[in-house]
Design a protein around this nucleic acid. Structure first.
Lengths: 241, 241
DNA sequence: CGCGTCCTTGACACCAGTCAAGCGTTGTGG
DNA sequence: CCACAACGCTTGACTGGTGTCAAGGACGCG
């Protein structure tokens, strides 16, 4: 299944017509090698795009070189829809591994929204979920201790990947260096390293070689105080469009 | 001028017709006393609303009672447009002083968007700015030290209030206790107190009695590493709808 | 082989959290 | 009118979670 169709089906399953229309609305796939920026902070934004494969992240660079990772983009995640109303990008998007992306014009999306109410709602849902995740990150970085934060990030990533069907048993792709982990959690890379070792020693997870393997999800969730409500994966049938 | 008109005019000045249509789309004003929640975490969302007067905040409560303030809502800020696609609220909205709010239905907004392209773009801009601010908060809490964070929050608040014409010289409303300040910055209230005293002693600002007074904006910005790009207040004429 | 990247470890310093106590103001009820 | 509680602010002493510095090891790659 097409990554975007799979993603939007999390909100509500799409029929063949909707899925086809969606795929046709996308521009040609473009390849972005690992560690390259898809778009750069400060640029004038042009088109939105959808991540088709790989994992990318939003990140912000401070003047003095500090870096904060703001979110992870997974296959099917769309990015910067309607951003053309802004004059300047306030953050970059970095491919963490080799990625393929496809551009989408706002016109194509407007057409889809007008033609297919379910797609409109699904795109809307995706945008709201992304905002919700951003808010959870604020709370995560602001309130939780280093180990809680790390556990929370891993829980979130695994849940998101699992919802997309991108897990392999207890494992999933998470192509971060320990420096990246530190920059995502707002801790130093040395501290990230020590936290990882603690988790490993406790037998909660394994992390390395670009993959996360969760060995004891229950305890990990408990450490994180993880509650997946904010991912809004269970819209319940009552609310499906 | 109506608060919402004033806010959206930051993107692009509205003509009389647009302003009138906008005001008519709003439901009756409702009063919310200070310290009361406008909407509560866990509730099923119904309608969106616009803050007409006062200051409110989004906040998230963790299971163990920790609290994180996620953002401040200023007059004209709209809230949760289109949230009806979600099954459950992931955060609360709290009135920090007495507020008045007005509800808006998604239908009314859809109509306005269809009828007035400029309003559509302006609403879209407002949503993107809010997301941008959320991302900046992640970077703020994740990367900056306590004093940098505090300085940054004050700079941001003053800039936003000033853009809305809600400042009184170097002063503006900021109705937070020191506990609130701590919860917004992710520091303990005791530490928030000490940071405030530092700033006071340095003659950078005064804070108390629900008001912030900035005495040396240049230095404060410098301490914060503040760059207002992310507020997207200067869309430049080239991009105005 | 030599270099770069990433991971690991130990020693030390410090920012910020916690605990505990005290003060001023406000509001309320006897 | 005063006693008292509630709240918010302030201060000091102590602790501890994290950051910093420094060094070294493992691995891949040109």
């Amino acid at each position: 299944m097409h990554p975007l169709v799979r993603k939007l089906s999390l909100f509500s399953p799409l029929n063949t017509e909707e899925a086809t229309a969606l795929e046709m609305a996308l521009g040609a796939a473009r390849h972005v090698p690992a560690k390259k920026e898809v778009v750069r902070q400060g640029e004038e934004p042009r088109v939105a795009f959808v991540l088709l494969s790989g994992v990318a992240c939003r990140q912000k660079l401070l003047d003095d070189g500090r870096r904060q990772i703001l979110s992870f983009l997974l296959p099917g995640d769309s990015c910067d829809i309607g951003i053309a109303v802004l004059a300047q990008r306030d953050h970059s998007i970095l491919a963490l591994v080799d990625c393929t992306v496809s551009s989408v014009t706002d016109e194509a999306l407007d057409y889809l929204s007008a033609q297919y109410p379910k797609l409109r709602n699904a795109l809307h849902w995706a945008a709201l979920v992304e905002e919700s995740i951003a808010r959870e990150w604020i709370a995560n970085v602001g309130q939780r201790s280093g180990s809680e934060r790390m556990a929370h990030m891993f829980c979130e990533h695994y849940c998101r990947m699992e919802a997309l069907g991108l897990t392999d048993g207890p494992s999933c792709l998470l192509p971060l260096t320990q420096i990246d982990v530190g920059d995502a959690l707002g801790v130093s890379p040395i501290h990230a390293n020590r936290l990882l070792q603690d988790f490993r020693r406790l037998g909660l997870l394994a992390f390395g070689d670009k993959h996360l393997t969760i060995l004891n999800f229950d305890i990990l969730k408990q450490v994180a105080g993880f509650d997946d409500t904010y991912l809004h994966l269970n819209q319940l049938d009552s609310r499906r469009a």
